[in-house]
Design a protein around this nucleic acid. Structure first.
Length: 274
DNA sequence: AAGTACCTCAACCGCAACCCG
DNA sequence: CCGGGTTGCGGTTGAGGTACT
């Protein structure tokens, strides 16, 4: 015996809801305190030729009061990115942190917008690590080159940062793109690349940004930029604070930071499309 | 202007968890 | 505890809209 269907599909309307159906459902819900005691039975009671699940979805995702439609704010972006990094695709949990947003909204937004940015990492680098640094891609209007525009390379070409080195300083590394140079060296723990804890979004021991090296000690830098040390670093960018906030956090959290150079090129680099 | 590709998002599907007799 | 009904959730689809050629 197969699954018992939740409704009689032959006698149920499917597809987009009409304004009349919306009004019927809204009216029913409003006269019942905005809650359904039984969604399966609701269509019959309300006079709708719809599946109960469809009614529930329509109400929760669209008709319910205080639903927020329209574009997501930067703050919401960062909430989604942060929580996705922490808990994965638990959309209902993520949506619960943003009043007025539904899990469906968040999921759609992630799938159409944020996922591309989240996965935007240099293919020359090892991105298998779950480690994540939080850098605001859109700081001062900078945008990443898209994979469509620059297939396979230079995912970070417009990011005003070319390398972050973590470990003995200076770290031997290919010269980064001259227009996007910035280097952060974490310091001088000689011969101990992995002496700091392996960083992970699940164990942000050292900073909320989880810079670090991986367990096997082979990854000696966290880098991005098209000329980053070939294959030796990894980068998994997420969303987070502005560049200045990031720098402040790093200065605050890492007493062994030995050098931070924020380049003039930051101000000179042109936003995408400019 | 027409055709095509791409994007968005409402809606559907199926599964697992939960509830209750 | 068990089993059937219901709810909640995440993955996926596809119609309609928009951008591009």
């Amino acid at each position: 015996m197969g699954r018992v269907p939740c409704c009689d599909k032959a006698n149920v309307k499917r597809g987009p809801w009409s304004p009349e159906e919306d009004a019927t459902l809204r009216s029913y819900m409003e006269t019942h305190g905005g809650a359904a005691d039984n969604w399966i039975a609701l269509p019959k009671k309300a006079g709708l030729r719809r599946c109960g699940k469809s009614c529930r979805l329509r109400w929760l995702n669209y008709l319910r009061p205080k639903i927020k439609h329209g574009s997501f704010t930067e703050e919401e972006d960062s909430i989604i990115m942060r929580l996705y990094n922490e808990i994965g695709s638990r959309w209902s949990v993520i949506a619960s942190q943003m009043p007025g947003r539904t899990d469906n909204d968040v999921k759609n937004y992630w799938n159409t917008k944020l996922k591309k940015r989240h996965s935007c990492s240099n293919p020359n680098l090892d991105t298998t690590s779950s480690s994540t640094s939080m850098i605001d891609y859109n700081y001062q209007g900078f945008q990443l080159a898209t994979s469509e525009a620059r297939p396979g390379l230079a995912m970070f070409s417009n990011l005003p940062m070319a390398s972050i080195n973590y470990g003995p300083s200076p770290v031997a590394q290919a010269a980064p793109s001259p227009n996007n140079v910035s280097t952060i060296n974490f310091g001088a723990v000689a011969n101990s690349w992995a002496s700091r804890e392996s960083s992970s979004i699940n164990s942000p021991v050292n900073s909320p940004y989880s810079f670090g090296v991986t367990e096997n000690s082979r990854f000696t830098s966290v880098s991005c930029g098209e000329n980053a040390a070939g294959g030796h670093g990894w980068m998994d960018l997420g969303f987070g604070p502005s560049w200045n906030d990031l720098i402040n956090e790093l200065l605050f959290d890492h007493e062994e930071v030995t050098e931070i150079s924020a380049p003039n090129a930051m101000a000179e680099a042109k936003p995408k499309g400019a």
